[in-house]
Simulated scan of single mutants.
Amino acid sequence: MSIEQDLEARLASAPVVPLIGASDIGVAVQTANALSTGGLSIIEVVLRTDEAVDCMEAIVKQTSGLIVGAGTVLTVAQAEEVIARGAQFVVCPGLVDGVAEYCLKQNVPLYAGTMTAGEVQRAYALGLRTVKFFPASLAGGVPMLKALSSVFREMRFMPTGGVSASNLDEFLALPSVIACGGSWLTPAAAIDAGDYEVITNLAREAVEIAGAARP
C-alpha cells in the first residue's frame, strides 16, 4: 500500500488531521501520542517554530503507527528538508508551482492551500487532485466549498482554519471534503499545563463527530 493509499484509508475512518505547533521535542511526542490514543493517527507538524522540524523528526522516530507530515511549508528548500527528515506528506498554506512539482516528483502527497477558483484550477493543472482549503472560515466556508465542488468535480478538499468541534460535521457532510485540519485539538493551555488527557478527549470527540457525520 502506498502512503497515499494509507492516508486515504485512514482519513476514511477518521477524517481529521490535528496540527501540532511545538518547540519542545518531548512535548511534541507526548502530544502526538495523546492524539493517537484518542484515535487520530495522521499528524501535521506545522513549521511555526525554529524547532519544528526537529519535533517532527522526533515524532517520526519515537512513535509508532502514525503518519506524520509537515505543514506551513513555504519553499522548495523546506519541502526538501522535511521530506529528508521523514515527512510523509506536505501541507502548504498556499499554492507554489515549485513545491507542487517537487512533491509530485518525489511521490509525496501534497495538500497545497487554495481559496479561489483560480488557485484550484491551477492546482488541477499541476496534477493535484486534493488540496487544502485555507483559511476555510474566511474563504467562504461550506457555501464556498459547495460552489467550488460543483465546478471542480474531481477535486477533493481539506478545509483548515476556523474549523472546530462546533462546525466539523458541517464540513464533513460535503462529499468533496476528504478531511478537516485544525489546531483546536491541541490547545496551548492544555499543553502548557501538561494535561494531555484533554487532547486525547478532544481527539475522541472529533472521531465521534466524524462518525456521526459520515456513518
Rank of each mutant, 00 (worst) to 15 (best):
Y102D: 12
P18R: 09
V120Q: 09
P159C: 13
I199F: 10
F134Q: 00
D195T: 12
D192P: 14
R204D: 11
A34V: 12
Q78F: 02
S137L: 15
G94D: 05
F157Q: 09
A212I: 11
V76W: 00
G21Y: 01
D192R: 15
L138Y: 15
V108H: 00
L172R: 10
Q62V: 01
P215R: 15
A139P: 07
A70I: 11
N107F: 00
A173L: 12
W184D: 06
A58F: 06
S2F: 11
M155V: 01
E119C: 10
C92N: 05
S36E: 13
I191F: 15
V198H: 09
A14E: 09
L95D: 02
E170W: 12
T72Y: 06
L128K: 04
P135Y: 10
A9N: 13
L110W: 00
E197I: 13
V131E: 01
G65C: 13
T116K: 09
L7S: 02
V91A: 13
S164Q: 12
A210N: 11
A117W: 05
E4M: 14
G39N: 08
E8V: 05
F157I: 12
N33L: 15
G98Y: 00
I209F: 04
I42E: 01
T186A: 05
P175H: 09
G140Q: 03
D24R: 10
I67M: 14
L95W: 07
I83M: 12
L126D: 03
E51Q: 07
G98K: 04
Y102W: 14
V177K: 12
L126W: 01
A165R: 01
G38I: 10
V60K: 04
D192G: 15
K61E: 06
A32K: 00
T200N: 14
G39R: 04
V99N: 06
E8G: 00
V46C: 11
A70F: 10
L40D: 05
V17W: 07
V96H: 07
P18W: 08
F171E: 12
Q30A: 15
R85D: 09
A147I: 11
A9K: 15
L7P: 02
D169M: 06
T31Y: 13
V46A: 05
A79T: 03
L138W: 09
R122T: 06
Q88C: 12
G71M: 03
I20Q: 04
L35G: 04
E170I: 12
M144H: 06
L35A: 07
C180F: 01
K61H: 04
P159F: 10
D24Y: 00
V91C: 10
Q121V: 03
I3Q: 03
I59Q: 04
W184K: 14
A22H: 02
G162N: 01
S137P: 13
E208V: 12
I3V: 15
F152R: 01
T72Q: 11
E81I: 12
V207A: 06
F157E: 03
L19E: 08
S137K: 15
V53P: 02
V90F: 08
D24W: 11
L40W: 10
V45E: 05
Q88L: 10
A22D: 02
N107T: 04
G118K: 04
G86E: 04
L172Y: 14
T49A: 03
S137E: 15
A32D: 03
P109L: 04
L11A: 11
I199R: 05
Y111H: 05
S64A: 14
E205M: 07
